[in-house]
Structure formats: structure tokens, C-alpha cells
Amino acid sequence: MAADGPSKLGFGRKLMTGKAVAPARRDVAHEGFLTHRRGRWARIAAELSVAAIAVYVMTDPTPRHNGGTSLGYTLGTLGTAMIVWLSLLGVRKRVIGSKPFSLKGWTSAHVWLGLSLIVIGTLHSGFQFGWNVHTLAWALMMVVILSGLWGVTLYATLPEKLSANRGEVTQQQMLEAIRTLDRQLDTAAQPLAAEEAALVRLSLERCRIAGSLRQRLSGNYANDGNALALAAVSERVSAGLRAGRPDERLQQIQFLLERKEAALAQARRHIRMKAQLELWLYIHVPATIALLVALLAHVLSVFLYW
């Protein structure tokens, strides 16, 4: 019985004196990850890149710049260390522990140092590209960095839109709202004739909230069950109005279908943006793993077979 166990927190906590009353150190600054600590990592990355370029331009090794010169070795070692360290962000974000660290700081360093790798990796190569494992490693690095850049762009632009679209509604509530409309549609369709009820069934049974992959990517849901049902019902309603015989039951159905269409649109925008915020990772992360393997092959081949 847990309640009878020894006191973990104890009464020691009641004493309110001594240094223990100072709250744990924490980062209260309201800065995004790009400007973390007034852009500390951006500055470091820029300095690193400028320094690498300066040394590269000022030295003139024979026969030419490549990975085998002392600068090349330095940049290669630095680059490898950075790549390995930057890839550990994925582990870091999952191990919380109780020690002080700021994941925001890690992300900031990840982004800015990652960008500086363009300079460091390329200078390391001495612009010697070819169809080999060495260039493969460079190419994979560039894929990782560019996909990361794509991710940063999304992180900088999408959250605001995501928040605006969501309002104060949670994803759960969006889906619940659609289910509620479905129930209301089901009730409202009871007195309808079979043919009209079939239209409502189109919305109830052939409507997929997220839709197929193609629909999700294109954002075009024109042939989804609810859209079809709404179009057909709207046509009948306006035909009824033209004929001077408005059908109140159908108008109610039309109203519900319109509300459902709006609810679907909101949920789809939400899902689409959430997917976009994750989609780039499906390139970034596998490419990183491939890069680490290629890097290993590159280092091994250089030292064993050169």
C-alpha cells in the first residue's frame, strides 16, 4: 500500500530556510530557438565559417586543397564530430532527466552549426567531387542540411497558422464535432425518402476526414463523400426553391452538411499542417542515418585504403 510506505517527500520539505529555497535555475527569457541567448549559436556558427574560409583562402597547399592537407584533416575531424553531435539531438530530446539543459539551446545549436557544416564540409572536400563514397557522404550531408532548412522554414511559418486555424479547439474536439454532426445528420435523415437518404449516407459512410495520401497532399477533397452529398443536396434544395416547393427537411440536411464541410475543412487544414511539420523529418532523419553510415565508410576507406 503506497500510502503506508515510508515518506518520500518527508517533513524535511516543510523547513523553509537555507539555500534550498532558491528555485532551480531556469531559462525564463522569451526567445525562440533561432534567437536563443541573443543569437549565440548563430554568431558562433558564423565565426566558425568565416574563420574556415579565411584559413582556406590564405593557405595554399600543394598540390591543392583536399581532405588530406592539415586544414583538410582539421575540418574533416571537426565536421565529423559536429555531425555526430548534431545527430544526437534526437536522443537528447527524448532523455529528459533532472539535470539542467535547454532543448531550445540544443535546437538552436543544431540549426546554426548544421548550417555552418555547408562551409566546413565543402571546404574539407576542397571542391573535389566525383562518383565515389566520399562525395556520397557530402551529398547526403547536403540533403540533410537542406531538408533541415526546409524544416526550419516550416517551424518559422506554420505554428502561427496552425494556432489561428485551431482557435481554442483541440484536435480531439474537432473530430468529436464531426462525429456530433454525423449523429445529427443521421437523426435528420430518418424521415427522408430512400433516394435522398442515400445522399446523406454518402456523407456518413464515404467521407474520410484525412482522406487519401493524394488528397492530403493536394488539399483537394472535391470528390469526398460529404462534398458530393452537399453538392447533390444543394442542387435539390435550389430546384425545390425554384419550383416554389421548398423542402424544409432537405434544407436542414443542407445546413448540417455545410457545417460538416466547414468542420472537415478545419480538421483537414489542421491535420495537413501537423503532417507538414513532421513530414520533413521523414527525409531529414533517414538521410541522417544514411549520412552516418556513409561517413563511417568514408573515414574507414580513407584510413584503410588510401
Binding site: 531559462d27 522569451h30 526567445e31 525562440g32 530557438f33 530530446k93 539543459f101 531550445k104 535546437t107
Partner: peptide
């Protein structure tokens, strides 16, 4: 707060 990657 520590675990927020973007500082939100």
C-alpha cells in the same frame, strides 16, 4: 520548459 525545442 527544458524540453521545448523551439522555446514556445
Amino acid at each position: 520548459v527544458r524540453a521545448c525545442p523551439t522555446g514556445a
